[in-house]
């Protein structure tokens, strides 16, 4: 709409990502145990496959008949594999703190902090890609 709204959005998202990093670093530094920093890495690479898929699918014309572009258009296998990878990575980022907690490598507070921090970072990246997308064709992509 205007530059003001875009600027507000940017500031909000940067605050959100800073809070996410704060949570994760806190979960590591408070207990002097730097294993949960792996969660950041997983949640940072989680949006990459979907971004690639979007990049591919805009240049790839999958609807060869041109009639059904909204429902029933067959996605390319690469896009589907990217979706699969996204689901895999998000679930991995959720399960990694759980496993560390289950194996007594981190304690309960560190588990909660790292899990929430990871989700906040992922949420801010997704909101960034949704908020600055040009066409709002479907809001269902993560």
């Amino acid at each position: 709409m205007s530059r003001q709204s875009s600027l507000t959005k940017l500031i909000f998202l940067s605050v959100l990502i800073a809070v996410g990093f704060l949570n994760i670093v806190l979960s590591c530094a408070l207990f002097n145990n730097w294993i949960p920093i792996l969660v950041v890495i997983i949640f940072l690479i989680a949006p990459i496959p979907n971004a690639l898929a979007q990049c591919i699918s805009t240049s790839y014309d999958s609807n060869f008949l041109g009639d059904y572009d909204d429902d029933g258009s067959v996605e390319s296998p690469f896009v589907e594999f990217c979706h699969f990878l996204t689901g895999c990575l998000v679930m991995s980022g959720t399960l990694l703190p759980l496993i560390l907690f289950h194996c007594h490598l981190i304690n309960g507070r560190s588990f909660a902090l790292s899990l929430s921090g990871g989700f906040i970072i992922y949420l801010s990246i997704v909101l960034f890609s949704v908020g600055f997308k040009e066409d709002d064709s479907d809001g269902y992509d993560f």
């Binding site: 996605e75 699969f84 689901g87 895999c88 399960l95 479907d138």
Partner: peptide
């Protein structure tokens, strides 16, 4: 639409595979 349903199902399939993988990792780390 069917495309959305398919995307969601692919996401769920990926999540299930991740659960499987991390269960094995959990067993060995444990």
């Amino acid at each position: 639409n069917s495309r959305t349903v398919r995307s969601v199902m692919v996401y769920i399939a990926g999540a299930l595979y991740a659960i499987g993988f991390w269960l094995v990792v959990d067993a060995s780390v444990y």
